[in-house]
Every structure is written in C-alpha cells, then in structure tokens.
Write a protein that binds this DNA or RNA. Sequence first.
DNA 1: ATTTGTGTGCGG
DNA 2: CGCACACAAATG
Length: 741
Amino acid sequence: MTPTSRSRPQQGALLDLPATAPQAVDGEGVSEPVARVVVDVPLPHLDHTFDYLVPPAMASVALPGTRVQVRFAGRDRSAYVVERRSDTDHRTTLAPLRRAVSPVPVLSPTVLDLCRAVADRYAGMLMDVVRLAVPPRHATTEKAVLEKHAPGALVSRVVDPPDSQAWQAYTGGPAFLRHLAAGESPRAVWTALPGHEPVPGAALSNGSASVESTVEPTVPAGVLPWPTSIAQAAHATLASGRGVLVVVPTTRHVTQVVDALAAILPNEPVARLVADDGPARRYRAFLRTLLGEARLVVGTRAAAFAPVTDLGLAVIFDDGDDRLAEPRAPYPHARQVLALRAEREGAAMLVGGFTRTVEAQLLVEQRWAHPVQAPRELLRRVTPRVEAPGEVELAREGPAAAARIPHPAWRIAKEALTTGPVLVQVARGGYVPVVACARCREPARCRTCHGPLRLERAGAAPSCSWCGRIAADWACSTCGDTRVRATRVGSTRTAEELGRAFPSVPVVVSGATADHGVVETVDDRPRLVVATPGAEPVARGGYVAALLLDGATSTSRPELWASAEALRRWLGAAALVRGAEAGGRVMLLGQPAPVPAQALVRWDPAGFAARELAERAELSFPPAVRLAAVQGTPAAVRSLLGHLEPLDGLEVLGPVAVEAPDPRTEAPAPTRRPRTGSPRAAARPVPPRPLVPEPEVRAVLRVDRRQGAALSRRLAHAAAARSARKEDGGVRVQVDPPDLW
DNA sequence: ATTTGTGTGCGG
DNA sequence: CGCACACAAATG
C-alpha cells in the first residue's frame, strides 16, 4: 500500500511553478526532521500537504499518523503527520510543529489512502473525510487504553473454519465462505432469506397450542437470521487470519450483529463503533480496533473507515437505508466507501439485504460482485405467502373494500391471532399526522406559519406540526368549513382502532415518535404490533401474519427511488413473518404501485432491481450514469460552472431555483458571531448579510459512468480555483446526490 | 481566515 | 520621498 503522501501540485493554472528540487533539511540531530502534514483548513485550494520542521523534543512522538498542532496563516491549527522525511520541496525555511498532541498514530497509511480516494471520488477535501474517519480524541480514554494495552499479549487466536452447513441455503453461499476461509477475496451481493430464532422448547415439545401442527415445519439448514449469517461469514474470514468490518444502518442493527458474533465466536473480542455511544466509548472502541485488540468490528456508517488491521471482509447490510449516507461534506455513502476499500485493501465484500438495491444490481451487472441468493423452491417455503389484493378482488369481498383495513385483512389478523403475534406496518407515526378540511379536502394549515395541522390524540384540537400552536378556532381558508378529517392515519390511531376490534389481545406500538420508543423484540404469544417502517420489533419465532397498510403513501412519492424504497420497507417487515410452510401470511394494502407490489408478492427483489436499473439506464438516471449536484447562490453556481474544465459528454442541467428551505429543518437565523473579543472585527465593515437568505439554485451535471472520476476531479479543481480567488457565496458540490426528484 | 507582500495615492 | 491604505497572493 502506498500512502498518498506526495505533495500535490498547486491547484489549477494558478501557480504552475517549476518543481523545486527537494532540498535536504538540517535537523540538528533529528533524523527525518521534516513532517509532512495535512492541515485542518476549510479551503479547497489548500487541500494538499505542507512541510514543517520537527523540533528535537517531538522527534519520537510526531510520527506518521499522529495528531499535531501547527501554526498556519498565523493561527494554531490541528493537523496530522502523514510522512516523515529528510528533505522538502518548500523553498523557504520551514516553521516548526507547535505541539505533538498524542503519540497514537490514529490515521494509518491505509486509512489515509482510503480517505484520499473517498475525497477524490466525491470531489471533496481530504481533511473533511479524515474528520469522518478518525473520531474526536478523548484524552482520559486514550490514557486508560494505552496503560492497559500490552502489545506482546496480542495472540492471533487460530480459528477453525465454520462447518459446511453454513450458507447452504444460498446458491454460491458455501463457495463464498470457502473462499473467505482460504484467504481469498470474493465479492457478493446477497439477498437474505427471512430467518427466525427458533422458539425454545417449541421444536421439541409437541404439546403446542396449535392443533393442526401435526407436521412440524422443517426449517432448512442455513436459513438463519441475517445477523447469524453475517457472523458465519465473519467466522470464515477469521479462519483465514484476517479481520472483518460490518457496517449497518442503526445502533439496533449493530447490537443484533454483535450478539450474533458473540454467539458464534464467544472468545473473539468485538469492537462496537457507534457515534451514539458517546465520545469516550466510541474512542475506546476505535483504539481497540487500531491496536488490533479486536479483529471483529461492527458499527454504523462512520465505521466504514475503521482501522481494521489486515481487513479480509467488508460487510454492509440493508444498503438502501438512507442512514448509510453521510450527511456531512463530501457526503460519502458507506457502501461506496467499503467498495473502494475492498478494492484498495484486497478484501472481500458482502453487500446484503432483504431487498437488492439498484446500486447493488449495478455491482452484479458489472460483474464486480457475484449474486448470492436462495433457489426459488426454498424461497417459496421460507418466505410468507404475500397477497396484494386489487380493488376488484376487494370489492368481491363486500362493501368495505375502500376501508383502510378491508375485510380480508381483518380475517387474516383474526386467524393469525389465535396462534401468535401479528405485525401491522403503518407509514406514519403519531395519531392523525395530517388533517384536511372535511368539506373541500384542502390540506389544513397553521394560520401563523402555514405548517400542516395534525391531531395529537383522540379528541384533541388540531395543532401545527411545525410550530406546535393549537389551532383552536380553525376554519378552512378555501371554503370556511370548521371541521377537519384525517388524511393520514398514524400508528397510535391505528393501534386504537385495532384494540377496539380485538379487545382480548394486547396491542404494542413501536416507532421513533416521542410517545413511545422503538420496541426491540416481542415474544411468540398472540399480540398486535403496530409499527412504522424500520421500527418493527423482531418476534421470537416470527410473526404469524403482517398487514402492510398505506401502500400508496409509500409509492406515490415523486422521488426516483420511491418504489425501491417502498419495496425495501415492505420486505423488511415481511421478512419478520414466518415462512409459508409455517403458515406465515402477508397482505399489502392501500393501493400500492403495481411494480413494487408484484415484486413483493413474488418475493423477487433481484428482478425488481434489474428492471429498475434498466429503466434508469434508459432514462440516463443514476446509478446508470454519474450525477453531481452544484447548489448555492446563482452567482456562485455560475462561477463554479465557469471554472469547470471541459469534459467530453458532460451535460449541464439547469441551474434552476431550488424550493424554499423547509422551516422545520432549516435552522432559524444563522446569527453570525460578531467576534466581540477582536477589536479588528469592529473596525472592519461587516458585509451586509441578507436577513432573508438569498434564494439558491441548483445545477445538475451528468456524465457517463466511466467519466465519473474525471467529473469529480474537475469539480474539485473548480472549487479550488474559486476559493483561491476568494469568490464568496458557498457552493455545495454533491456527487451522487441522494434526493433528486 | 489571516498574514504578508506589493502597489497606489496623497501629503509633505 | 515617506507613509497609509487597498488589494492580491500565499499560507510550509
């Protein structure tokens, strides 16, 4: 691995000085007295290395990978040493390092190389990526970990490969594990089967309440919960003496994977890298990874950069979850980070999920990864029977066809509740999250801020979901009517209705809203579980049935990804239900779009992904092509586009005005600090900052996928040229923007 | 951002 | 000519 420690040439045509011959530096006894560093400055044209002199006192501390402080443009800035050398290409005398912050080389050459690749791919700055990769230092934790750490005690335990039963359910599965165990680096896109933890005792005792279960369903070998399958792949990789990194969307997923690893590899330490754990625990887990104390690392998106020693396998699960995309510049996606990493470090990769994302489909079609999925016959047995009755079928059943929960759905729930738990997936949380005028159906809005009104609980007056004001004397601005009706029904109200219909069955609500938290698990007793997508509790032994309400709500969104996202959510819920062989049933309701609905009924996420990708190729949409969005004030966007060097086949769409920022998500007024401490600031005329932020525009750049790297390079150059000229008005450059259309 | 270097204009 | 101020370039 070659770290990219070479000083990059000055950006653009601004400064094309003849390369100065490296000059030896007299270090007064210090060997390699030059520290090449990356400095934390937010200016794109300064996104390269700088050389400093290492004072004798820091000679053995300021080693490559360590944090230091340097004087830069008159201020102390934090920086990382990326290289130590004995010469410099800088012409004038070097300034000394100010302070060695810590002796721990937190930025390893491998991770630095990855950060550079990610920055390049996303047209961003190296330091922005490094900030994502290296968690903030926690001094007391660092001291504690270093004191306890005994380098000699690191025993690379030899692990035997997993038994040959593992992954047998999947075509190509055993081969995948075999290659991992042999130290090779296969890549797979894995469509996971629903698997359920067996109910203790149920498989053995035949005195179950279920009368007709004379035939005990035989769960085929290898149909296991997804975290267990991942643990088996990790096991195989450990057998080759290499480390494993697993990245998942949420803390909840992390816990599931950590538990599965503990069950299969009880003696193997696991590092849990989750930002939610807080600075101390997060930094401790990071250091344990860095020191090689844990070869198994599990975490959320930032963990994609974890310094796993000798990485053998990178895993990402449920890669369609938007929480795997980093919200800070340069907005890298964990799937992409891991893919770059697998290539650069020669590691294997596993992209898994119940659905198959369009991006994963592209990896398959490019032959970058092999598909790993179950044969049709097995799939039919272990997935639930799914129905998506159309209006015609429902009308045959009786007059209540248009009801949110039509008669056939009630019947499924009633039958299932005699045996075990039933899941009801509802698109929205809360009680009645959106109301409209009862007469003209115009959405009801707040008189003060024009936010949408909702009902927070039974019998409550409507209130604004943006500002919280109670709209006690609301009247429709269109027709004057004072009555409201529900346009969306949330999980709380749904639970209320279901509770009335099944008074003898307990009802559980799970969701990320304030009223109630996310419920992790439920047992196998009869119970109604109402949950929003992603918050479905795992039921021991699997749900007997699931009702997926609000089908249209999830597919009618205008975004490009709406139907793929709907299918992902439906499959996520349906995968918690027992297989058809064990009586599991799913009903999809609420007029969903037919294409994703049929993909669910046939349980064919790969077919859906192939069709979706073909369609996007036809329309020149990503990921079939590479897109980048450039957003900012009109002048700033225009200037950035003006600085772009020509690129074959580059299409520039727009710029067009972007819709007004949403007052819910937009911070109030970004009060600019007047810097009271500095007398200079008072003397300088403050540029007038508009009270109302200037409206922004966005341009979309489109190129062939093979030109993607060239586009990113040009965007980074243009941003550097702009910042070098101190052109103000920030522009946000986003490669692979997730939220277009 | 902040510092440093260079150019310009005006008073002496 | 000398100095203050403005602007541009560089930041090690």
